[in-house]
Design a protein around this nucleic acid. Structure first.
Lengths: 190, 190
DNA sequence: AGCCTACTAGGATGGGCGTCTTATTCAAAG
DNA sequence: CTTTGAATAAGACGCCCATCCTAGTAGGCT
């Protein structure tokens, strides 16, 4: 059978997490947003809210990871730009209300739900791996590629937080500009 | 008169926000942690929870800003290092449970409390200003100083999020290393 | 001394939340 | 046709929360 209500709930959860965070996203909101049935929440997600959030993090994590992987494979700067562009569009489209769902869960996850934190760590790691692979292919050493990938993810996530607080994309744009400089600097001279 | 219970509440709120976020920090927790009296909450904070959080953000923001300003005035790298050191110590001391209270509020602040977001924006801006001033004194152009200050704050805040998720200071250390490179690169050659 | 302002006491209240339960629908497998 | 189990329905339950309230206390000022 495989009704699609389960997937709709996960997608809606990811959307709502971006704006309202983990604690601020209730089942009632998810139901209303996804137009999914009340009764099947604990049928599809016997682990309750934590399981739903975990799957939403995985869903969003995979989405972004694939976005990075489908960029021009040998142009780290182009990859960076498209990575940033997604987030900037999300910020502008929501009037700076929507951040990153993974950050939301990572900062709010209750201490008694280690699976949530692990899902976030996995999502971040997959992004770093994909970014590092692009740098590696462009001739950057492996260790440096990893560090550059880490600061890229960190600076963009932080830039999103700054942009939301300031209600402006400028912090994110400045972050992108400096990251671009750092990447160009690390590329082998031709 | 000026009893100190008010200040204790603000300090406790800042501490608890780091671990449990905005929604996860209740008045009961603040009272218990600060050993302050129940009855005076709405005497000291007629604006309720939002006002308490706002003051906690201001308190934490000023604390960190002064820390930056009291670093060696002409050594941007040393300033960066001490800025990072505070956060790393907080992460390790709490076994990666404590993040940044300003980020917590910035990502969770309800949309109907614009003052909260503004307090966060102000805190971030004060850090950026202090960092940019150090770079400027070391001979970096004004525009570049501002951009470097922005990416420093963004990357460190993002690095804290990554470090919490991974339960390791490595992401933050890698961020520090790359930031240091970028700063050295921007300094005028002597 | 007397007053008055700042502070403390601690529970009541109403609302929202995650969770769980029982009953019902309905599409396919036997 | 019967059976089976996934999917849905709708609400009750108990918990915790921010908020507010009416009293009461104490300490400095005149």
């Amino acid at each position: 059978m495989a009704s699609d209500s389960r997937e709709r709930m996960v997608r809606s959860a990811a959307v709502l997490l971006r704006e309202h965070g983990y604690a601020g996203t209730g089942f009632r909101d998810v139901i209303a947003h996804s137009e999914a049935p009340w009764g099947s929440i604990y049928h599809h997600f016997p682990g309750g809210k934590a399981q739903l959030a975990e799957e939403a993090v995985r869903y969003a994590g995979d989405f972004v990871a694939q976005l990075i992987e489908h960029s021009p494979p040998d142009d780290p700067v182009a990859t960076l730009r498209s990575f940033i562009a997604v987030w900037r569009q999300g910020l502008e489209a929501s009037e700076f209300r929507a951040g990153c769902p993974v950050v939301a869960v990572a900062t709010e996850a209750p201490a008694d739900q280690p699976a949530l934190g692990e899902a976030c760590a996995h999502a971040f790691a997959s992004w770093e791996r994909a970014l590092a692979a692009t740098l590696r292919r462009a001739g950057v050493t492996q260790a440096r590629s990893r560090r550059l990938a880490t600061i890229t993810v960190a600076a963009i996530e932080g830039g999103i937080v700054l942009a939301r607080a300031r209600r402006s994309t400028k912090p994110l744009d400045d972050v992108g500009r400096e990251l671009e400089l750092a990447i160009r600097e690390a590329l082998p001279r031709r």
